[in-house]
């Protein structure tokens, strides 16, 4: 494709990214660096602040449309702290799956692919995209949560009982390395599309059109990185290497969840997440 076509594709994916993802990297950066003019997030660092912070989780400052779309997680008063945190993270994850799905459908050519292949691409790609999306929300001390209204400290997450305390640490480690690439939101949009359009996912029937779509997005990504980050010629290669780390990270995460399901009898897994993780790795 001509470079003008590739730039148009980049613009289109960037617009879709901003339409579907409420907490962008630039917004997260502003919140984390305290540049939000007194509107700083509520910090959850212990059980007391977790209880107080539930108010912020339930009262999201989102546009009306977003509020209508969301269904609040059911309250379970006498629930154990760890299970309560896990349930809230799961609930937000299920919402994020919907956001990623809408973004995925906006990738030019995606909805013309075989329907079962679309499902496989989404099933395998969605947690990788969500894990990448988490990186800009994190710094070495903690992570933003609930659309940037909450900051949950890394120490608090580490203080949860086993195995819950082990779940977020690998994501913090990935984020620290990923954030060094200093991608911007438009780079992230293209990278998400590249992840989704992976032609090597198990069970795909018609690989060729998927690879063709991915090739075009890869060209758009390469062109964009050269244009926006001319001082970092290795960026494209470095970014593609992250895809291998992501697969490993997600495979470990899914194994962890399967183990949790067996060990924690009181733990309920969200039906959408259950569907995605069933037979995944």
């Amino acid at each position: 494709p001509e470079s003008a076509d590739l730039r148009a594709l980049s613009r289109q994916l960037c617009l879709s990214y901003h339409r579907h993802f409420p907490l962008t990297k630039s917004k997260a950066k502003a919140i984390l660096s305290g540049k939000t003019h007194g509107n700083s997030p509520f910090v959850i660092h212990d059980m007391k602040s977790l209880t107080a912070g539930q108010y912020f989780i339930n009262c999201r400052q989102l546009p009306v449309l977003e509020r209508q779309r969301s269904v609040l997680p059911p309250e379970e008063p006498a629930e154990e702290l760890e299970l309560s945190v896990f349930r809230r993270i799961q609930f937000r994850s299920a919402e994020a799956v919907q956001e990623v799905t809408e973004f995925t459908k906006s990738i030019p050519g995606f909805t013309e692919l075989d329907m079962n292949d679309q499902v496989i691409l989404l099933k395998y790609g969605v947690i990788e995209v969500m894990t990448t999306m988490l990186a800009p929300l994190m710094n070495k001390d903690g992570t933003l949560f609930a659309y940037g209204q909450i900051f949950m400290t890394r120490e608090f997450l580490k203080s949860l009982r086993k195995p819950f305390c082990e779940m977020m640490e690998p994501k913090f480690e990935f984020a620290a390395k990923f954030n060094l690439l200093e991608l911007d939101d438009s780079d992230m949009a293209l990278f998400f599309a590249v992840i989704i359009l992976s032609g090597d996912r198990p069970g795909l029937v018609n690989v060729k059109p998927i690879e063709d779509l991915q090739e075009t997005v890869l060209q758009a990504l390469e062109l964009q990185l050269k244009t926006i980050h001319p001082d970092c010629p290795q960026l494209f290669a470095k970014l593609l290497q992250k895809m291998t780390d992501l697969r490993q990270l997600v495979a470990n995460h899914v194994r962890h969840i399967h183990l949790l399901k067996k060990q924690e009898l009181q733990m309920c897994l969200h039906p959408l997440l259950q569907e995605i993780m069933r037979d995944l790795y």
């Binding site: 209508q68 299920a94 919907q98 799905t101 909805t111 499902v119 989404l122 099933k123 995605i276 069933r278």
Partner: peptide
């Protein structure tokens, strides 16, 4: 298809609310 009915529904429906 039965194994992935929510994903199918998410992919086929437009941006209308999805009951989970």
């Amino acid at each position: 298809k039965e194994k992935h009915k929510i994903l199918h529904r998410l992919l086929q429906n437009s941006t209308s609310p999805v009951e989970l």
